Simulated scan of single mutants.
Amino acid sequence: MGTYLEDMRSYFQRHNKQKEYVGHSSKVHTIAWNADGRRLASGSYDKNVTIFLFDNQRETLRKDFAYKGHGDSVDQLCWHPTNPEQLTSASGDKTVRIWDTRTHKCSATIPTKGENINITWSPDGQTIAVGNKEDLVSFIDVKSHKIRHEQQFKFEVNELSWNNTNDLFYLTNAQSGQGYIHIYNYPEMELIHSIHAHPGNCICIKFEPKGRYFATGSADALVSIWDAQELYCKRTLPRLEWPVRTLSFSHDGQLLASGSEDQTIDIAHVETGERVANINVAYPTFTLAWHPRNFLLAYACDDKDDRDRDRDAGTVKLWGLTDGR
């Protein structure tokens, strides 16, 4: 038996093909798989949320429906942590919307005070947190569709996340050019830890599926992996050269994909930090997400139309396929 690292390297030598799917008429900002891995959602500058159905046998995506209603760019979306039919989207139109894939309708529109850029759903499914361009974070009660609490910050707030047990709330931020992770107890929202994580603005944060550790990506082009209990940095991944915008852990928690403006997506072995595989890309990567059960990575870049370089392609790509797919 080889090691996990060797096994996965040889696996991705055989599974390194990709397919692309047109989902939008403009650039794709955000993608996410639902809880059971049967649907992929994408949000775009074209104001729409698109749902793709995933065929597990064929390992293909099929465009199912486009949700219209937002009046501005959809900057981030996320699914309910356990209900595979519900998702929420954050838009520059100063609203948050909750969508239901059974009815293909918007089940709630929640007005907010600013242009929304970051959104996350609590692990217990009861709360949606949304951050806007003015660094105000609003906590929305999912049942009543009302904002339960708002917190204004005096620094640049980037990505938001709860820990897996729902009692801590994390945000990545920048203060005078330095990157911090702030950890608050939840629901009280008192600051309990402030970690000076990066010499550059701390942009994104992702928890590993079991919640044992989390990763952050920074404007300094570094990815760092942290022990969630002890809050120490296990390792940093130094292979990228541009600000790290997007991160995703594989379903087994052992692989970490990182995307940036580099012409490569880095896939690292979490335990050693070594590269397992990489995907060559022609444009900056905005968003990526591992499938919740398979070693398939969905991602979207700032792609341009092959025939008209001034037009966005609006494509979503699926990587990790075999030659025969």
Score class of each variant (00 low, 15 high):
residue 22 V to K: 15
residue 82 T to C: 03
residue 46 D to G: 08
residue 179 G to P: 07
residue 60 T to R: 12
residue 122 S to V: 11
residue 236 T to Q: 13
residue 241 E to F: 09
residue 322 T to R: 07
residue 54 F to S: 04
residue 51 I to H: 05
residue 219 A to D: 00
residue 248 S to Q: 07
residue 257 A to T: 05
residue 235 R to E: 00
residue 151 Q to N: 05
residue 177 G to V: 09
residue 5 L to A: 01
residue 313 A to Y: 14
residue 193 H to S: 12
residue 38 R to M: 14
residue 212 R to A: 10
residue 128 I to A: 08
residue 91 S to T: 04
residue 175 Q to T: 09
residue 309 R to C: 06
residue 239 R to K: 13
residue 243 P to L: 08
residue 118 N to E: 00
residue 159 E to P: 03
residue 58 R to K: 15
residue 29 H to R: 14
residue 64 D to Y: 08
residue 286 F to I: 00
residue 179 G to E: 03
residue 285 T to G: 07
residue 147 I to D: 01
residue 295 F to K: 10
residue 117 I to N: 06
residue 267 I to T: 01
residue 184 Y to H: 15
residue 23 G to A: 14
residue 88 T to I: 11
residue 276 V to P: 06
residue 113 K to P: 04
residue 96 V to A: 03
residue 85 E to L: 14
residue 72 D to V: 00
residue 201 N to I: 01
residue 309 R to I: 03
residue 7 D to Q: 15
residue 78 C to G: 06
residue 31 I to H: 07
residue 237 L to G: 00
residue 210 K to G: 08
residue 217 G to W: 08
residue 293 R to W: 01
residue 76 Q to I: 02
residue 278 N to F: 14
residue 282 A to Q: 14
residue 175 Q to H: 08
residue 104 H to L: 13
residue 80 H to V: 07
residue 194 S to N: 10
residue 77 L to M: 14
residue 114 G to F: 02
residue 162 W to Q: 08
residue 306 D to F: 12
residue 316 V to A: 12
residue 263 Q to T: 08
residue 114 G to V: 03
residue 25 S to Y: 09
residue 181 I to C: 03
residue 185 N to P: 07
residue 164 N to F: 12
residue 27 K to M: 14
residue 270 V to T: 01
residue 121 W to C: 00
residue 68 K to P: 01
residue 79 W to F: 13
residue 229 Q to L: 15
residue 32 A to M: 04
residue 19 K to C: 11
residue 114 G to R: 02
residue 317 K to I: 02
residue 40 L to M: 12
residue 323 D to F: 10
residue 68 K to F: 05
residue 207 F to G: 12
residue 79 W to K: 06
residue 172 T to R: 02
residue 14 R to Q: 13
residue 2 G to E: 13
residue 204 C to Q: 06
residue 5 L to S: 05
residue 248 S to P: 04
residue 269 H to C: 12
residue 201 N to M: 04
residue 69 G to M: 01
residue 283 Y to Q: 09
residue 87 L to R: 09
residue 85 E to M: 14
residue 81 P to F: 11
residue 42 S to D: 07
residue 98 I to F: 14
residue 81 P to S: 13
residue 206 K to S: 11
residue 162 W to T: 09
residue 310 D to Q: 10
residue 298 A to D: 03
